[in-house]
């Protein structure tokens, strides 16, 4: 399954300062669907290069990170249970405080 991942608000610093990642990831053995929960652990292993604690906390993202699936807050699509589809766009963005 082809997905586009985007990192922003400083989270790109955890993956070699690359903001956009075109990835190919398939559901795990025995599962038909790829959920956000699956994707997060895949991202943590395959995309995040340093300080994983700045990205994850427990099995979800750390506080202060907004997750958007196709430009919509993942709270509206079922958070970790969101089922991903071919060509979906997933954005991880850290909230900014500067001004």
């Amino acid at each position: 399954m082809q997905l586009t991942l985007e990192f922003g608000g400083g989270l790109e610093l955890l993956c070699d300062s690359v903001k956009i990642h075109n990835i190919n990831v398939d559901p795990q053995d025995g599962e038909k669907q790829l959920t956000m929960k699956n994707l997060l652990s895949w991202v943590c292993t395959n995309v995040i290069k340093e300080r994983p604690e700045m990205f994850m906390k427990g099995d979800s993202v750390r506080p202060g990170v907004l997750v958007l699936v196709n430009d919509t807050d993942w709270e509206l699509s079922g958070q970790l249970e969101t089922v991903l589809e071919e060509k979906d766009n997933v954005v991880f963005i850290s909230t900014l405080h500067g001004g």
């Binding site: 400083g10 604690e53 700045m54 750390r62 506080p63 202060g64 990170v65 907004l66 850290s94 909230t95 405080h97 500067g98 001004g99």
Partner: peptide
Amino acid sequence: CLFPTPPPTNACQRCADSGV
């Protein structure tokens, strides 16, 4: 509603450190 828990302190970069 969006951010019920504050982020870890080292996630809060400042313009004075990170530039803008």
